[in-house]
Design a protein around this nucleic acid. Sequence first.
DNA 1: CAAAAAAGTGAATGGAGATTCATATCTTGG
DNA 2: CCAAGATATGAATCTCCATTCACTTTTTTG
Lengths: 219, 219
Amino acid sequence: MEIHILVYRETELTQARRADIRHRILEAARGLVAAGGFGAVQMSDVARAADVATGTLYRHFPAKPLLFAEVFRIAAGAEVEHVRAIAEAPGEPGSRLTGAILQFTRRAARGRRLAYSLIAEPVDPAIEAERLMFRRAYDTVFRRLIQEGMDAGVFFSEDPSVASASIVGALAEALVGPLAPESGLDAEAVEARAHAMAAFCLRALAARRPAPSSQLPAS
Amino acid sequence: MEIHILVYRETELTQARRADIRHRILEAARGLVAAGGFGAVQMSDVARAADVATGTLYRHFPAKPLLFAEVFRIAAGAEVEHVRAIAEAPGEPGSRLTGAILQFTRRAARGRRLAYSLIAEPVDPAIEAERLMFRRAYDTVFRRLIQEGMDAGVFFSEDPSVASASIVGALAEALVGPLAPESGLDAEAVEARAHAMAAFCLRALAARRPAPSSQLPAS
DNA sequence: CAAAAAAGTGAATGGAGATTCATATCTTGG
DNA sequence: CCAAGATATGAATCTCCATTCACTTTTTTG
C-alpha cells in the first residue's frame, strides 16, 4: 500500500516560466524608471506594465525597495561595463581615460532620464546603497587606469584613490546639470563638456615630463 | 455713536514672539537633522524639540518640505559663506583654492552628519531643489576664483564652468565616502585627502608656465 | 474687564500606496 | 482525470504620518 504524496514538483518548465515572469517584471520596472524615474513608479504600475497582478510582484520580490534595487543594479552594471571595456582596452592610458569619459557621457546623453535616475535622482535608501556601489565600481575602473598610467610613467598622482574619486565626482557633477530632466542642453554641448572634462582630468594626472611613451628609458 | 471693532492689532511684541517661535522651530529642526538626517525627522519630533504643538508648526510653515527646505537653505548658506570668505580673501589664487578646499573639508569633518545630509542624503524633491542651489553656489565661488586666476595668468582652463563643476563634484565625491555616517575615517585622514584633492585641482588648473606672479610683464 | 482677533493645542482625520490574503487557476505525476 | 502543491489574482487592509480643525489660551485696545 504505497502512498504517493508527491504529485507536483518543480520542473524545468516551471522554473523557466518563473524566471520569465521575474524577468518581465524587471524589464517593466526598468522601462518605467527610464521613462519617469524611480520616484514616479508604484507597484501597481509595474504590475500593469508587466501584465501580472500586484500580488504576483511579491511572489518574486519581497518588497518594493528590493525590486528597485535590482533594477538599479542591472542598469548601473551595464553602464559600468561599457565604460570599463574602454578603460581596459589596449592603448595609451591618456587616450583610454579620455575615451572612458566620453563613453560615460555619450551613454548618459542618450537615455538621459535613466542616467539622471542612476546618478542623481533622490531615491530610497535601499537604492542609494546600490548607487554607492555603482560609484565605487566606477571608482575602481578609474583607479586601475590611473595606477596603470603611473606604472607606465605617464600619470602622476599623490593619492590615486583621491584622484579616481575626484574623477567620478567630476563626471557626476559636470553632468547632473546638463542631464537634469529640465535642462535643455543638446548632445553637442554635452559632448563639448565631456571633452573639457577629459582635458581637465588629464592635466591633473599628467606626469611632469611629457609621456615617455616613445622614448627608451635613459638608464 | 462710534463703533470700535479693532481691538487686537499686531504689535512689536507680538511680532517678536512670532519670530522667536519660528526661530525655535528652525533651530529644533536643524538640530534633529544634524543628529539624524532629514529622512529621520518627522513633524511631531520637531514640535516636541521646539516645545510647541504640532499644529503650531503649520502656523509658521505651510508644509513640511518648506520647513525643511528652509533648514537646508540656512545650514547650506552658512557653509558656502565660510568657503566663500576664504576663496575671496586677498592672496594668490592657488593658495586661496587650496584654502577653500581645506575649509570645506574641515567643516564637513566636524558636523559630519550634517555635511552628509547636505551633500548626499537622499531627500525629498523640494529639498533636492535647495541642494542644487547649494551646489550652484559653490560652483559660483570656484568659478570666480578660477576666472580670477586665469586673468592673473596663473590658472588655465578651456572651460571654467566645467572646471568649477568638476571641483565641486570632486569635493562631494571624495568626501561622501569618508563622510558617510558609517565610515570610520578619522579627521587626520580626511585632512590628508583634502590636501591631495587640492593638489589634484591645482595641477588641473595650472597654467603651463609657472606663475608669473613675481615677474614683471616682459613687454 | 470685555470683546475681538490671533495664536496655540493635540487628538482625530485623511490619503497615498505598499502589502496581504482568501480565492481561483494552473501544473504535475500517477 | 484526480489530488496535491504552487502560483496568480486584485480588492481589501494596514500603516505611517502629514495635515487639519474644534476648542482653549493669549494678547490687545477701549
